[in-house]
């Protein structure tokens, strides 16, 4: 395996970890409207991710940085080609990121409401538009020889990309509810489980539609039928695991299941992309990993750096989660949000 292929996998891995972690952050943000019934519950829900959301989002920043550092032609084409969608992702992330601190300082009901709404909207926009970008990109878009992407409106907004966006949002919500079940005690926790009992069947339907559309609209199943099918089955199986956890009231299983489903979506897309990073309608203009990659020297340095730093990050990252395991009771919440 070449270093550039290794970095393609690393980027995929970073995006998977990002979706696993930030996925529940997004879902938690959405739950402030779909689950919580009053201010106290909303604040409790917000505080479940208070110490973690920033670290989780750093995985996205790292994935973007890694993309720039290893496959810059991909980074350049993708980000410039999906300009407006990335702008909307950014707007979402900005609104969300400030909500935590600003909500803490808001003293009127209107103020607190406003920051809860920015939290909610900022939790829906990014997963929706990120999934939309990825699922538009894998269908193939008009590109030139320089690698500039010029997707037209219906290249960006079509059945698969919209279904993908909605599925990403739904899966994040389900994942967030599973996280809430892990971190909250009392009736709110039970309500999260009940809501997921309703959401899972819809999710399964969505996943089937998604799989059919991927089959029809991309070349994943013609290029690599076996692995694409296998990963699609895994997505559904992990979701079933999550559903099992809902039915049996085992939130650990649910959380692992929904998180891995999200990660597997990235695996499916990266598996189908390989060895390309951008798919052009004219195959001659598609960008291949080897053409997108940096020099061997730079990739070697990045590999050494990653091998040293990632394990260290992983250790304190996991340790930070181990500090906040006590369940939050919405009625006795001492954390101010």
């Amino acid at each position: 395996m070449t270093l550039s292929t290794l970095w393609f996998i690393v980027i995929g891995l970073l995006f998977s970890i990002f979706l696993f972690l930030e996925g529940f952050d997004f879902g938690v943000g959405m739950s402030t409207r779909f689950l919580a019934k009053d201010e106290q519950e909303r604040a409790a829900i917000m505080s479940t991710i208070g110490p973690h959301w920033d670290g989780n989002e750093t995985w996205l920043v790292t994935a973007g940085g890694a993309m720039f550092a290893s496959l810059p032609m991909w980074y350049a084409s993708l980000f410039s080609g999906y300009y407006i969608l990335f702008l909307l992702v950014l707007v979402g992330l900005i609104l969300r990121g400030v909500s935590f601190e600003f909500h803490k300082h808001a003293e009127t009901k209107t103020g607190r409401n406003m920051w809860m709404w920015t939290f909610f909207i900022g939790s829906i926009l990014p997963p929706f538009f990120l999934c939309m970008i990825l699922l538009s990109m894998v269908q193939g878009i008009p590109m030139n020889a320089n690698g500039d992407a010029f997707p037209k409106f219906f290249d960006v907004v079509n059945l698969l990309s919209v279904v993908g966006g909605v599925a990403g949002v739904l899966l994040s919500l389900v994942h967030g509810l599973n996280f809430i079940r892990l971190r909250i005690e009392g009736p709110l926790r039970e309500r999260a489980r009940k809501l997921n009992q309703i959401l899972y069947p819809i999710l399964f339907l969505g996943e089937v539609v998604f799989a059919v559309l991927v089959f029809l609209q991309t070349d994943f199943f013609t290029k690599r039928f076996g692995s694409s099918l296998f990963i699609t089955v895994l997505i559904v199986l992990f979701s079933l695991l999550g559903y099992y956890g809902v039915l049996k009231d085992r939130e650990g299983w649910s959380f692992a299941g929904s998180g891995l489903s999200l990660s597997m979506v990235i695996v499916l897309l990266f598996n189908g992309l390989f060895p390309r990073v951008m798919i052009a309608t004219n195959p001659a203009h598609s960008i291949l990993i080897k053409n997108a990659a940096n020099s061997q020297y730079t990739l070697t340095i990045m590999t050494i750096v990653a091998c040293i730093l990632v394990p260290i990050v992983a250790i304190y990252f996991i340790w930070s989660y181990s500090l906040f395991t006590k369940r939050i009771n919405p009625r006795e919440n001492t954390v101010k949000y």
Binding site: T58, V61, T62, G64, G65, A66, M67, F68, A69, S70, P72, M73, Y75, A76, G147, N294, S295, T298, I301, M302, V305, A306, L309, V310, V313
Partner: peptide
């Protein structure tokens, strides 16, 4: 595209 070989590394290291 022009600077990818140099510029991405510090950004990625900054994140990590």
């Amino acid at each position: 595209r022009f600077m990818g070989d140099v510029f991405g590394a510090p950004l990625a290291i900054e994140a990590l």
